[in-house]
Design a protein around this nucleic acid. Structure first.
Length: 645
RNA sequence: GCCGGCGUAGCUCAAUGGUAGAGCAACGGUUUCGUAAACCGUAGGUCGGAGGUUCAACUCCUCUCGCCGGCUCCA
């Protein structure tokens, strides 16, 4: 007999060699029915596997992340089987589970189109209906290679060669065999034929390597129940509806055009108004937070970029130089070297440190055409950049300061959920990084100290540091639960040495300062896109390009509407009176709704007689009649508190 | 950049080798209206651009620009 420990701490006795499925049954028939795998001492296994010794057992259902992974992975196999059944000369690539679904890469001479997806789905439903048992078996590497050779699965052969295990595991369902670590569902019928959907076909390089052939990848999603699938598809539809590329056009905020070139944003008056509001708020906070604001050029001589190392390490991201009087000048992809020029413009004393220099610096980077994506990925953008130059003794406090400063800034825009990542160097390859070991250790220590001083929970990302220093990244979570990296706070052990930055210390000697590079919103363009999607274009009052519209019920009330607008404008409210002739009040309200204007003031005969305004919100809430001074008080309060509406 | 898809009026979309069309927006007129679209009319297009095939090209071919979904990279 063996003893198994259940997650609740209870122990149960079984005969040695009991299958995990039997264990699930013994715990409860309901669990057995929902079970798709099991954790044995924390390791994920198939339900069919047997246990022979004492261990901790945790039966997994598809409601857990591991269970979902099994479901997704098996569905990927079913899809691969369907593709092999339908098309000749298919070679299998890889087919893993991913967030919310799966994909499988195929080498297939025929081009897949989205209309093929329906055919493949039908074949998948047939495979599911066949209730094929999914078997796991192991082979030696040689046998494994023979099997795959025989089946012409050249890509799989390559994968076997890369494995460092003695034996190779396979999964088989019907005549479909795949090289796979598993685990998998016990049978194809475990997949609900109504709860999966193939989403799209796309090209993907074999192993993500551009020099390798391009395969065809099919993405799909799978859930337990149709209702869950529907919820997921609805979420995708919501993401599409909120797409900033659509909203910036509809709301007349920002545009792109072919004539001007790809990846270059044009800010229209309304978008421009918002950008000014964002930047003004940013400047105010920076001055309050002890920063100075600087301005630097857009181009600089080649020598500058040689010294900084950009021409060695970042050339691919830079545009070709322009020649001016025999000298090469490059348009800047980053602001750092220019900030250093200001620092090096004279001798610096320890007394003036720390220096916190911020710039809304517009940079241009070459991005390959296929990577451009609305305002999220462009070729010209403005970074909310700053460099903190300080003594080693000051670094702990500076890091703490900038962390809090960033979170405060982001909260001002209505973001409340954050994820923090600490990226440190890969200890196995210290030679790949600039700067001395001691500096790396100190820097990492001060980053950790800052995070722990404030009890911030964070993920430690080993080997994710950039070559010139460790960093902290802050990701914000938006209204749809997606996360976006905005803030990055990076040590730079490279630049100070390259530019020979110095300060005179208390001891009268020269010392090298520490430099921290930070961008909080990241890029204004990108951050703006996030705002648009986060708020679905219905911005908080303080950010709305137009805060109030005054809507006359009839032409007779135009004059009154104008005077209301005039009074609001006088106290700094962004307002428009819509007195255009021939428009019904219903039309005006509908237009204002579509424009997502926070406040609509309806003025008709009643309001004009009583000297009031009827307040309607874009949420469709009707606040009823209100004196203008009361309304001004209300909206001013909302603006100051940065409330939504 | 690469693979696949797409590009028709300001916007959303029709028209499968034979005279380019609708709704909304714009403009003109009528209507003066109470919380999401009043009514009538007018105008608007070298069908992304260039070249080619054809008696004839929005439609087929080549190149090019841009957009979309991915690969890769990242703000």
């Amino acid at each position: 007999m063996i003893q198994l420990v259940l997650p609740d701490g209870n122990k149960k006795e079984f005969k040695a060699g009991v299958s995990l499925y039997e264990v699930a049954q013994a715990i409860g028939p309901g669990l057995a029915k929902a079970a798709v795998g099991a954790l044995v001492d924390g390791e994920l296994h198939d339900l069919r596997e047997r246990v022979y010794k004492n261990c901790a057992i945790n039966i997994i259902t598809t409601s857990s992340p591991q269970g979902r992974e099994i479901l997704c992975h098996t569905t990927a196999h079913i899809m691969a089987q369907a593709v092999k059944n339908l098309f000749h000369a298919v070679k299998l690539g890889i087919g893993p589970a991913i967030t919310d679904g799966f994909y499988y890469d195929f080498d297939l001479p025929r081009r897949l189109s989205s209309s093929d997806l329906e055919k493949i789905s039908e074949e998948m439903r047939r495979i599911i209906a066949d209730d094929l048992s999914i078997e796991r078996w192991e082979k030696s590497r040689e046998e494994a290679k023979e099997i795959m050779q025989e089946r012409g699965e050249e890509l799989k052969l390559e994968l076997i060669d890369e494995l460092d295990t003695e034996t190779v595991t396979f999964y088989q369902q019907g005549d479909f065999i795949d090289l796979c670590r598993g685990p998998h569902l016990p049978s194809t019928s475990y997949v609900n034929p109504n709860a999966f959907k193939l989403i799209s076909v796309a090209g993907a390089y074999w192993k993500g390597d551009e020099s390798r052939p391009m395969l065809q990848r099919i993405y799909g999603t799978v859930w337990n129940k149709k209702t869950e699938l529907d919820t997921h598809l609805e979420r995708l539809a919501e993401i599409e509806r909120r797409d900033h590329r659509k909203l910036i056009k509809e709301l007349d905020l920002v545009s792109f055009n072919d004539e001007g070139g790809a990846g270059l944003a044009y800010w229209h008056p309304k978008g421009g108004r918002m950008r000014v509001l964002i930047e003004d708020y940013w400047r105010k906070l920076h001055y309050e937070g002890g920063y100075e604001i600087i301005f630097t050029p857009h181009i600089g001589r080649a020598q500058l970029w040689e010294t900084s190392g950009h021409l060695d390490f970042y050339r691919d991201g830079m545009y070709s130089p322009m020649e001016i009087e025999g000298q090469d000048y490059y348009i800047k992809p980053m602001n750092c070297p220019f900030h250093v020029m200001i620092y090096n413009s004279r001798t610096r004393s320890y007394r003036e440190l720390p220096l916190r220099w911020a710039e809304l610096g517009t940079v241009y980077r070459y991005e390959r055409s296929g990577t451009l994506h609305g305002m999220l990925r462009v070729r010209g953008f403005t970074q909310d950049d700053a460099h903190i130059i300080c003594t080693p003794e000051q670094i702990d406090e500076e890091i703490l300061r900038v962390l809090e400063f960033s979170l405060n800034l982001l909260r001002g825009f209505g973001f409340t959920k954050f994820k923090i990542e600490l990226s440190v160097r890969n200890p196995k390859t210290p030679e790949k990084y600039a700067g001395e070991d001691l500096m790396w250790e100190e820097a990492e220590a001060s980053l950790v100290k800052a995070l722990e001083a404030k009890n911030f929970s964070y993920h430690r990302m080993e080997g994710e540091a950039v070559f010139y220093g460790p960093k902290i990244d802050i990701k914000i979570e938006d209204a749809l639960g997606r996360t976006w990296q905005c803030t990055t706070i990076q040590f730079d052990f490279n630049i100070p040495g390259r530019f020979d930055m110095m300060y005179i210390g208390e001891d009268g000697k020269e010392h090298r300062p520490y430099m921290v590079h930070r961008a909080l919103l990241g890029s204004i363009e990108r951050f703006y896109a996030l705002l648009v999607e986060h708020y679905n274009g219905a911005f908080p009052v303080w950010l709305s390009p137009l805060q109030v519209v005054v809507l006359p019920v009839s032409q007779d009330n135009s004059g009154y509407a104008q005077s209301i607008a005039q009074q609001l404008r006088a106290v700094g409210i962004r307002v428009e009176a819509r007195t255009e002739r021939g428009r019904t009040i219903n039309y005006l309200i509908r237009q204002a709704q579509l424009e997502k204007i926070p406040y609509m003031l309806v003025v008709g005969k009643r309001e004009e007689e009583q000297g009031t305004v009827a307040v309607r919100l874009r949420t469709e809430e009707d606040l009823g009649p209100c004196r203008l001074d009361q309304f001004i008080e209300l909206i001013t309060e909302k603006i100051t508190r940065k409330e939504l509406i």
